[in-house]
Amino acid sequence: MQDDPVIRVVAKVLIPAIMLFALYVQFHGDYGPGGGFQAGVIFAAALVLNAVVFGLHRARQVWPMRYNLMGVSAGVVLYGGTGVWSMLAGANYLDYFALKADPKAAQHLGILLVEFGVGLTVASVMVALFFAFAGRLTHIRLVAKTAAHEATDSGTSRPGDAA
């Protein structure tokens, strides 16, 4: 896969286009079909394509898992935080009318924020799940390899064993 120039070039062209389309679906959800759920999944699809074509290791460098896990939580915090903001502004939880003076602008702002929260959580969750499943095989192989090492040269030093 990684040695196939056609797939590499096509993926390099496609990945930014998919990400851009995800952003379009995210922020155009008020006017056309789409929204946070769909946009999050599409954005995750771009990163999955990156992992499949260029390898999991490089995909993890592009999209570090530490920050990805923060994204999983940050989306929910953004959604819930919008509700807290409306409470601080003196209205009910998630009542967007309090966010701004103009009611339609307030609704737009509220919807934009919560949809972005949904998109952030969904994209990070999908990427985390794929990386977890795809990395599992490596983990199983490493465990098996370590067990084989322990069986053959037990008692001696084991090179490269840190598991």
């Binding site: 008020d30 939880y93 949809e115």
Partner: peptide, 28 residues
């Protein structure tokens, strides 16, 4: 009132904001 042409988005994110928050927490 909301000024969003896509009714699905206004129901999902505004009228039924609690439900969507619940869905997001479920995914989380």
């Amino acid at each position: 009132k909301i000024g969003v042409p896509n009714v699905v988005t206004s129901v999902l994110a505004s009228y039924r904001g609690y439900d969507t928050l619940g869905e997001t927490v479920v995914i989380f």
